[in-house]
Amino acid sequence: MKMNTLKGIALAGFMAVAPTAFAADYAVDTQGMHASVNFRISHLGYSWLKGRFNDFDGSFSYDAENPEASSVSMEIDTASLTTNHAERDKHIRSDDFLNVDEYPTATFQSTSFAPNADGTAVLTGDLTLHGVTNEVTVDVTKIGEGEDPWGGYRAGFSGTLEFQPADFGIEYNLGPASETVYLDIELEGVRK
């Protein structure tokens, strides 16, 4: 009788946590570089200056049946920035902007994921940049998920984050047309 009671308690305990067991953890595919962290900022209101961070890593958890439980964690090597212009890159890495010697990494850790009926979502989290942490929101679109040709399973998302450098202690004045940076993030992950 005791054995059946113990089995029943174990089964009940398993069923109580079973919904979380369906959540899948994904490693961001930086090895095959099916992910990217790009940025853009207006140049004096006349054009877009675009660049990217070459070195970053991260992971995310996603369950289509319970998307509210999704989470994302990212780390970016700020010195890996490139805009395809060596002198400009040197200036952006300097203490006028990112100060990569003192702040070599930027991080993002999500705190909530709010899905919309149309397949988009709002991801909220803490962005740490230039030694300052602020809560930010990312507009996210799920691109897709499924099996890949190599026997793995993948999921992909696209998101855009807007922020003002001044909110992160970056005070270099680029003029009123250049007060907002847009981070465009493409995350394809391989299920672990």
Rank of each mutant, 00 (worst) to 15 (best):
P176F: 11
T120A: 04
F97L: 06
Y153E: 02
I170C: 04
L11K: 08
I92L: 15
G32L: 11
I143C: 00
V181K: 03
M1R: 08
V28E: 02
S59R: 13
P165W: 09
P115L: 06
T30M: 01
E65F: 08
S112N: 07
Q164R: 15
T124I: 01
G58C: 09
I185Y: 00
A10E: 03
E68I: 08
D25Y: 05
E75A: 12
V132E: 09
N134L: 05
A64N: 07
R40D: 01
L129R: 04
Q164A: 15
E179M: 09
A23L: 04
T120N: 05
N38S: 09
E171N: 14
A155F: 00
K142H: 12
P115H: 05
A114V: 14
D55C: 00
M74L: 15
G32Q: 13
S59L: 06
V140M: 09
E171Y: 07
D126F: 01
G146D: 02
V122C: 01
I76P: 01
S70R: 07
K192M: 08
D118Y: 08
A24Y: 03
T128G: 02
E87S: 13
R88L: 12
I76F: 04
F22L: 13
Q109V: 15
F60T: 09
T82F: 01
N4I: 12
A10M: 11
R154F: 01
S94M: 06
S110N: 08
R154K: 13
A21E: 02
T107F: 08
M74C: 06
A23S: 15
R40M: 09
I170H: 07
P104D: 03
K90G: 10
V181G: 00
E179F: 00
L161M: 15
T5H: 05
S73F: 04
L129Q: 03
Q31N: 12
S110A: 08
T124K: 12
L127P: 11
D184F: 02
F108L: 13
G125C: 08
L49N: 13
E145D: 15
T160W: 00
V181L: 04
T124A: 12
F60A: 07
T105Y: 07
R52S: 14
G51D: 04
V138P: 06
V72L: 13
G32A: 15
G13D: 05
V17R: 05
L174H: 06
L127G: 09
S71H: 11
H85W: 12
A106K: 06
G159M: 05
G146M: 03
L127Y: 10
R154M: 08
